[in-house]
Design a binder for these strands. Structure first.
Length: 418
RNA sequence: CGGGGCGUAGUAUACCGGUAGUACGCCUGCUUUGGGAGCAGGUAGACCGAGUUCGAUUCUCGGCGCCCCGACCA
């Protein structure tokens, strides 16, 4: 896409009402727009990033047998009354609304009840499970305090998968598979080497859960890491008993600040029991399926990538999540030959299926470079009088800053899209 | 929800009990063109309400909003 037509603009100065690095950079670079506290609009560049994150998650969830659905935001209180969670003292992040005739409705903050209820119609035999169902959908949570830019918001995209297995053994096997899929997701998102599977409390549903914690000072959590095994333990369950159970020793563990980018946990049969979801097993006996829940907040993942990878010049996107693969910068000035060459390069790359942000604006080099650094597309390509005189194009890596001149004849191979 | 801080052009900031200045942005023109250019002209602003006062953007109170610390975070 041509940058001259991109309706957003970069800003030199950070907004004063944002302290967090993720929000400052994303707003300055024109990826997001702040509507109000904890509520952000995704602008074209930010939307592209979220779509890429979504794609990675979707691929990995499909690979482990996930089936995608899209559930509703408006929810029936009756289902929640059955599970005992309609009460504001049980879930304190509710947004609720009412129909004109006065009927109360819930605005979804999670979907265990809704999905379990749907499955009553489709799961009745052991042949109907396991079922692994997920969605990428907007969640609303009335957080007491939104904070840390896009890390804790009141409205956000979330991937939530729910597993239904015949028994706990089947659940366990899938749970491990999903944990592996999560690690692949975070690796592809560029934060794999600083993300730890972390033993944590299971809240009110189970004795444990696994969180995926990414090391960053911007985090809200404290974890303890055992570098030898790569495992970590959340501070909230960092007790001698838990460590003994996990075979870990306090002597070998280091403390770190982190942000929770994902969470998986066992739900047992609580929701099937509350909502009446049963299947008939091989011997004709009726049983409750064993359930698990697996979440990733897409916006928080995007914010975490920013916190971990950006530098003093701006954003740095890993290839798989970058809004574009190449940032083509034309330094044409009044030189129509350079402008024509830049157009040719743009067309050649685009025809090869490469996503290009083409800075065709009538602006000076300094401004264009500063913007390119701020936006953080992995590869910058410059076409100018200099590069034409040298018979090629200049290719710069955003992360390392390393630059090379690629001869014109070698350009197709350099950008072969494989 | 407890505590603290803050609301001035699109953005970032300054000053002031007598209606507001600067920078960036944006518009026009000329020059410039490899790291956020120069000159000239122009555009655009006091969160809302009440009170005090001859007069409030400034002081007081209330509301609303934003940020930070803590608590909370199925």
């Amino acid at each position: 896409m041509r940058q001259s037509q991109l309706f957003t603009r970069t800003r030199k100065e950070a907004p004063t009402d944002e302290i967090s690095k993720n929000a400052q950079l994303l707003i300055r670079a024109g990826f997001i727009y702040k509507e109000m506290a904890g509520v952000y609009t995704l602008l074209p560049l930010g939307f592209r990033v979220i779509k890429n994150i979504e794609r990675i998650i979707r691929e990995e969830m499909n690979a482990i047998g996930g089936q995608e659905v899209l559930m509703t935001t408006l929810q029936d209180p009756k289902l929640w009354e059955k599970s005992g969670r309609w009460d504001d003292s049980v879930i304190d992040v509710w947004f609720k609304t009412t129909l004109r005739q006065g009927t109360e409705l819930g605005i979804a903050n999670t979907h265990e009840e809704a999905l379990t209820n749907i499955l009553r119609e489709y799961i009745s035999s052991h042949r109907d499970i396991p079922a692994y169902i997920y969605q990428i959908q907007t969640k609303f949570r009335n957080e007491l305090r939104a904070k840390s830019g896009i890390m804790r918001t009141r409205e956000f995209q979330m991937k939530d998968l729910y597993s239904f297995n015949a028994d706990e053994a089947g659940f366990r096997a899938f749970y491990e598979q999903c944990a592996q899929a999560y690690m692949r997701i975070f690796a592809r998102a560029g934060i794999g080497d600083v993300t730890y599977r972390t033993f944590a409390s299971g809240g009110s549903f189970s004795p444990f859960s696994d969180e995926f914690q990414t090391l960053t000072e911007a985090g809200e959590d404290t974890i303890y890491i055992d570098d030898a095994s790569g495992r970590a333990v959340n501070k909230e369950v960092y007790t001698d008993d838990v460590l003994a159970e996990l075979g870990l020793s306090k002597d070998a563990m280091r403390e770190a600040r982190s942000i929770e980018v994902g969470n998986i946990f066992p739900l047992g049969t609580r929701f099937p029991e509350a909502l009446g979801l049963m299947y008939t097993d091989e011997s004709g006996e009726k049983k409750f399926p064993y359930m698990g829940s697996y979440g990733i907040g897409l916006g928080r993942l995007m914010g975490t990538i920013v916190e971990v990878l950006s530098d003093d010049k701006g954003l740095v996107w890993p290839h798989e999540v970058a809004p574009f693969a190449v940032h083509l910068v034309s330094l044409a000035g009044n030189n129509s030959d350079v402008a024509a060459e830049a157009e040719n390069t743009y067309n050649a790359l685009t025809e090869r299926g490469i996503e290009v942000l083409f800075d065709d604006r009538d602006a000076r080099a300094g401004e264009k470079f500063a913007d390119a650094d701020l936006i953080g597309i992995p590869t910058r390509v410059v076409v100018s009088e200099k590069t034409i005189a040298a018979g090629g194009i200049e290719v710069t890596d955003r992360k390392t800053g390393s630059t090379e001149l690629v001869p014109e004849s070698a350009v197709p191979d350099y950008f072969s899209n494989d």
